[in-house]
Design a protein around this nucleic acid. Structure first.
Lengths: 204, 204
DNA sequence: GTTTACATACATTCATGAATGTTTGTACAG
DNA sequence: CTGTACAAACATTCATGAATGTATGTAAAC
């Protein structure tokens, strides 16, 4: 039997990994705690030692994952935006590149996406998305204030469009079983979108 | 006690309505057949008379709903496309307008979206989306063949972009609790997107 | 009288959570 | 350095409830 702290931590992560994969493929409701612990090579006793219940497991999964939105936010928050829209575009592209190769992010995206309805899940997801929306709003409003935004679109509308196209792209990529090059096509799309989001300068 | 065929049909639709609302707000896994029948004002016996099990209920729900994709497809298939991209744009706008006011479509979109993982749900959803993709592909390839497509994008890429932005827009609209005018903003976005999807004709 | 359209009752499965048992690491006394 | 006490890290067992599915009852329609 294992007893050292390293081994305990190893068990914990084994449980988390098993849960992540099962949740991703079968949904959070369909997979029992026994399935998870079995896949992790332990019993339910171990699971209940490390986690209070299924929701606690989900919370832990959510904690250890770095959602793609956070990455975008972090990049956008760190830099001082002298060119908000350019920063936004680059951050989004970076996010796509990371998401494309990070299986954990992909799984968590699926899990949290499907778990939106189940009461508790909406809390975290909503929080994350509200944070993201506010960051985007800040950047788009800054762009609007400094006159680099196409007057056809308000900052709010721009935020909605960016949120939609990004989440839609990720969803479509996963649903189509990664049938296209995410970062490549996404970058192309973003560049074109930025063209009409930016102010038209026919004669500068 | 009710016994006529009308009454039976009425009971059936009452069950479907109850299921639709509960599934939409709480997710398909969280709501039991008893909750559904109770909300419908009947017992589980009635439910089991009309439907084999929960999946059969979902299938019936899916059958009686006209998914927004179907509308787009129908419109696109009926008309003979002399201007594929224009037809596509108009069809998408029509879809948005209908979706914006049709609560049933909104609920079904939520349900099917959340049910993607639960094995069986993916079957129908996948079928619908494959159908939609193929129709879009047909139109975009036609546009490509007749030279109205921007050479920067292949027909496949265009299909992906349209699918992404549309589904993303619907998702964002629902998730933000309808915080913006769907058809209005969607039309604006589509018009701009079509500008860069269409071939640039600087000197015609 | 036969089938429809249910309601009621019951059997069964299954996940959960708690309670308890067991083994091992670890600290400390001597 | 050795035995002992205690707690961590699990495994095992059990009780409970909830959901499901089925079997049966039954009144009205046809």
């Amino acid at each position: 039997m294992r007893k050292t702290k390293e081994d305990a931590e190893q068990t914990r992560t084994a449980i988390l990994n098993a849960a992540e994969k099962l949740f991703c493929t079968q949904g959070t409701a369909a997979v029992s705690l026994e399935k998870i612990s079995k896949k992790a090579g332990v019993t339910r006793g171990a699971l209940y030692w490390h986690f209070k219940d299924k929701l606690d497991l989900l919370r832990a999964l959510h904690e250890r994952s770095i959602p793609p939105q956070k990455i975008l936010m972090r990049t956008a928050a760190e830099n001082n935006p002298e060119d908000p829209l350019g920063l936004l575009e680059q951050s989004a592209i970076d996010m796509l590149k990371i998401f494309e190769v990070d299986k954990r992010q992909q799984r968590m995206f699926r899990i949290m996406n499907a778990h939106m309805l189940d009461k508790a899940g909406s809390q975290w997801s909503a929080e994350v998305n509200i944070d993201l929306c506010q960051t985007l709003r800040k950047l788009t409003e800054l762009a609007g204030a400094q006159g680099s935004l196409n007057p056809d679109f308000t900052p709010e509308e721009t935020t909605v469009l960016l949120m939609s196209s990004m989440s839609g792209l990720l969803n479509e990529w996963l649903r189509s079983d990664k049938s296209f090059a995410l970062a490549e096509l996404g970058s192309k799309m973003l560049r074109k979108q930025m063209e009409f989001i930016r102010v038209k300068k026919p004669t500068d």
